Simulated assay, not measured.
Amino acid sequence: MKRLALALLLFAAPARGEEYRMGDYRAPVPLGLDGAVTVDTDEARDLLARGDVVVLDVLPAPRRPSDGTWLLPRPRLSLPGAVWLANTGYGDLSPAMREWFAGQLAQLSGGDKARPLMFFCVIDCWMSWNAAKRALSLGYARVYWYPDGSDGWEFADLPLERVEPRGP
């Protein structure tokens, strides 16, 4: 059993020398993220109840090739009060997207790098792990990672609300 758990952890980890997960984003995720606090659904609910955490959904969303508008096959239901920073969880972001992401975090945190930020996506999605790791690299000190995301929230029968994506 220990070998299986170790194999799963090794499979889930980014390749050695890789700072972010660069592909296969819908795969088992690790148990945690160095520098961040990994939270379960009850802890995520408690963070939201406190009212000072910035709740960040990073689920990807496709854009229309012709004009760049969002192409959403169905409405996104997310955690209450979440801001959807679409496409910011990829492992390799363009310089413009990295700059936009940093600007959004600065705006949403009021420029306070000690303000709590909670990142999520859906279950078994590396996007939130990558985005949380990127926030840590930008100097944010109170980063929370909710790996069960909106799926875990829904499974716990907690309310979801419609959210629209933001993006450059």
Results as ranks from 00 to 15, higher is better:
residue 101 F to P: 09
residue 80 P to L: 07
residue 135 A to R: 09
residue 123 I to T: 14
residue 61 A to V: 13
residue 59 L to H: 12
residue 110 G to R: 01
residue 2 K to H: 08
residue 55 V to S: 04
residue 50 R to I: 09
residue 164 E to K: 01
residue 59 L to S: 13
residue 2 K to I: 10
residue 105 L to D: 00
residue 116 P to H: 02
residue 148 D to H: 11
residue 11 F to M: 04
residue 158 L to D: 12
residue 54 V to H: 00
residue 93 L to P: 05
residue 12 A to E: 02
residue 127 M to W: 15
residue 17 G to M: 02
residue 136 L to T: 14
residue 89 G to P: 12
residue 73 P to E: 09
residue 116 P to S: 03
residue 125 C to A: 13
residue 86 A to S: 13
residue 163 V to Y: 00
residue 73 P to W: 06
residue 136 L to R: 05
residue 22 M to T: 14
residue 83 V to Y: 05
residue 6 L to Q: 15
residue 142 R to K: 05
residue 65 P to F: 03
residue 57 D to P: 13
residue 60 P to K: 04
residue 33 L to M: 03
residue 84 W to V: 07
residue 47 L to S: 02
residue 131 A to S: 12
residue 139 G to A: 09
residue 118 M to G: 08
residue 104 Q to D: 04
residue 112 D to R: 02
residue 48 L to K: 00
residue 164 E to P: 03
residue 165 P to K: 01
residue 82 A to P: 11
residue 168 P to H: 04
residue 82 A to Y: 12
residue 61 A to H: 06
residue 15 A to W: 03
residue 162 R to W: 00
residue 96 A to Q: 14
residue 125 C to N: 08
residue 81 G to W: 03
residue 142 R to G: 02
residue 19 E to S: 06
residue 19 E to V: 13
residue 69 T to A: 13
residue 59 L to N: 10
residue 131 A to D: 04
residue 69 T to G: 10
residue 109 S to L: 00
residue 152 G to E: 00
residue 123 I to G: 12
residue 94 S to L: 10
residue 85 L to V: 10
residue 78 S to N: 08
residue 50 R to M: 12
residue 47 L to V: 05
residue 78 S to R: 05
residue 35 G to D: 02
residue 9 L to D: 15
residue 44 A to P: 12
residue 19 E to A: 11
residue 149 G to W: 04
residue 108 L to W: 04
residue 4 L to S: 14
residue 45 R to W: 09
residue 168 P to I: 06
residue 11 F to N: 06
residue 1 M to F: 05
residue 119 F to E: 08
residue 53 V to T: 15
residue 42 D to K: 03
residue 10 L to R: 15
